[in-house]
């Protein structure tokens, strides 16, 4: 039961590791960026998991409904910011990949290194 209770955190750890593995092991720059995006999504999941209050609803205050149990809204807001940061990071990375393709004619890391060493 203990194990299942931490289900979301297990998923976080696995997704986190998959993303980090892709960043390190893949030579294709787009695949590296995909790995980075997966890696960041894992962290979003961690934040969203920790704000969940059992039985809590969406944190919206309405007239007439009082004494309601709410989930913690703060991590949701934080992660909204972090998602925006993540999107700009991916956009930035893709822009650099486009420029690398223009300058080198390839987006494979090893070929880029080769072409600079021979040049």
């Amino acid at each position: 039961m203990e194990l299942l209770g931490y289900f979301n955190y297990w998923v976080f750890a696995i997704v986190f590791a998959i993303g980090l593995y892709a960043v390190i092991a893949k030579l294709n720059l787009i695949k590296k960026l995909l790995g980075l995006a997966i890696f960041q999504s894992a962290v979003f999941l961690m934040y969203i998991t920790m704000d969940k209050v059992e039985g809590g609803t969406a944190p919206i205050i309405q007239k007439g409904i009082e004494g309601q149990l709410y989930s913690n809204p703060l991590p949701q807001v934080l992660i909204l910011t972090a998602i925006v940061v993540g999107v700009s990071m991916t956009a930035m990375g893709l822009a650099i990949v486009v420029r690398i393709k223009e300058a080198y004619g390839t987006i494979e890391e090893d070929e880029i290194l080769d072409s600079d060493h021979t040049a």
Binding site: V23, K32, I96, I100, Y104, D116
Partner: peptide, 12 residues
């Protein structure tokens, strides 16, 4: 142009 792969590494 070598700045580009350098920045990509920096970004990652």
């Amino acid at each position: 142009r070598r700045a580009l792969p350098a920045v990509f590494k920096y970004l990652i």
